[in-house]
Design a binder for these strands. Structure first.
Lengths: 234, 234
DNA sequence: ATAATAAATGTAAAAAATACGTTCATTATT
DNA sequence: AATAATGAACGTATTTTTTACATTTATTAT
């Protein structure tokens, strides 16, 4: 970005707000991030978090939901505000605050056609390309938050299919925490929390023997939660 | 707020951003909040968090620092973004996002004259009056954050004088966690963390015997932090 | 000299986290 | 039909951390 380009697009006499989404997915043992090509000048066409300006009559959270649905077709997914990015110089084109929100989606459920139509793409979290503005920082901050939050709240399940195996879940936590876990201790801990429902089905995708499928028991979890129960996976 | 009043002040054709500060202090065993009287219509004169519009050329974090300094005279205090509040209807007068930041200050150090001049006031955290807009929610959210954060990061010390006693520190944690702690276990835990420096002085304000003063050892803490050390006080 | 007060201290028991190796169920191959 | 191969499932002993709990100490005011 040269100074000339900056000036060309400067509309800095008004405040704008953008909602940018850090959209995480989990597939084949890898954490993934969905990005698309920026739709506005300056930097149009560069890789960017999926986002949009917030309309004057629109809640910030709604703007994020709107754009998530627009690109992935998904509604009612886990989404939480990360934080606002408010440096005056963060966007060379506008005086624009960004309210970043991170979303956890089941990667099997998004609308591939829509994603493709918008030129969006999944990147392995370890190989995210250079993104516009401060978006790479947002990704870093979101990862940090995910790491913190997964420890004390059962949000990891939002990234897995409804039915999942314990080795799958362990792999997810290993990717999030960036460290290996002992499978015996992990299983013991998880089952001791009493919020997994063992199903009568197996997933044979990864072994001859097959691994039992489980569901997360939200109902029980919410009950326990109210009576001072602590979910924790370290 | 009636509909008529709302309409009188509606300037909803532009986006505004405000920086609102949740300013915590700790005094005589109580957690306190600093509030002042709102300076803009609508609701001018009502109790409000200390805040200001963010100027077009100003970072959001700077706006918060500016207003904190304006009202308390303080600079270089602990301040961290809580989150953005972005409901379209949150302010009847403007389309205004608020980026809330919480600050922890040593209550002995603020400028009393300045505070008084601005009509600001400390309230016990259990007796905060009705504040404008969503400000009471912000306080709740900030308290929640403080509770979380104090557990894993040594931010409590930002609320105490540089020299403090262990009973003082315990009282602070009790107020933040809203539960009583065992003094023997608390002391043991704190000292085991190896980040307190025992001074040769006593504070005799609360007992005949007096309690030894300590300082938090930021230097050692930062060193330990880099080598995978975990501060935790439960 | 005594009374009063909060500060300071230790230990045993329980709970949680860690480290670690073997057997099991199933399918593909021969 | 027997065998090989593979990831899934499981238990126990050790260490570490957390919890529960009562007495003595230093100092000042009376």
């Amino acid at each position: 970005m040269t100074e000339v380009e900056t000036d060309l697009y400067s509309i800095k006499d008004k405040m704008y707000a953008a909602a940018d989404c850090i959209i995480f997915g989990f597939d084949s043992g890898k954490l993934k991030l969905l990005v698309f090509k920026r739709r506005v000048e300056p930097l149009k066409g560069e890789w960017s978090l999926i986002g949009s300006f917030v309309r004057l009559e629109e809640d910030v959270a709604e703007a994020a939901k709107r754009v998530l649905k627009e690109i992935t077709g998904l509604e009612n997914v886990f989404m939480e505000q990360l934080k606002a990015y408010g440096r005056a110089s963060r966007d060379p084109g506008y005086r624009c605050l960004s309210i970043a929100q991170y979303a956890l989606i089941r990667i099997s459920e998004y609308d591939e056609e829509l994603v493709e139509k918008h030129g969006a793409r999944w990147y392995d979290i370890g190989a995210v390309p250079d993104l516009v503005l401060d978006h790479n920082w947002m990704v870093q901050d979101a990862l940090e938050r995910l790491k913190q939050k997964a420890r004390y709240q059962p949000i990891g399940f939002e990234l897995l299919p409804e039915k999942f195996t314990i080795p799958q879940l362990q792999k997810l936590y290993e990717v999030i925490y960036q460290k290996e876990l002992d499978s015996r201790n992990f299983r013991k801990k998880l089952l001791s929390l009493k919020v997994l429902i063992k199903l009568d089905e197996k997933d044979k995708a990864n072994s001859r023997r097959g691994a039992f499928l489980y569901k997360f028991d939200y109902e029980t979890y919410h009950k326990l939660e109210k009576s001072g129960y602590n979910f924790e996976i370290s």
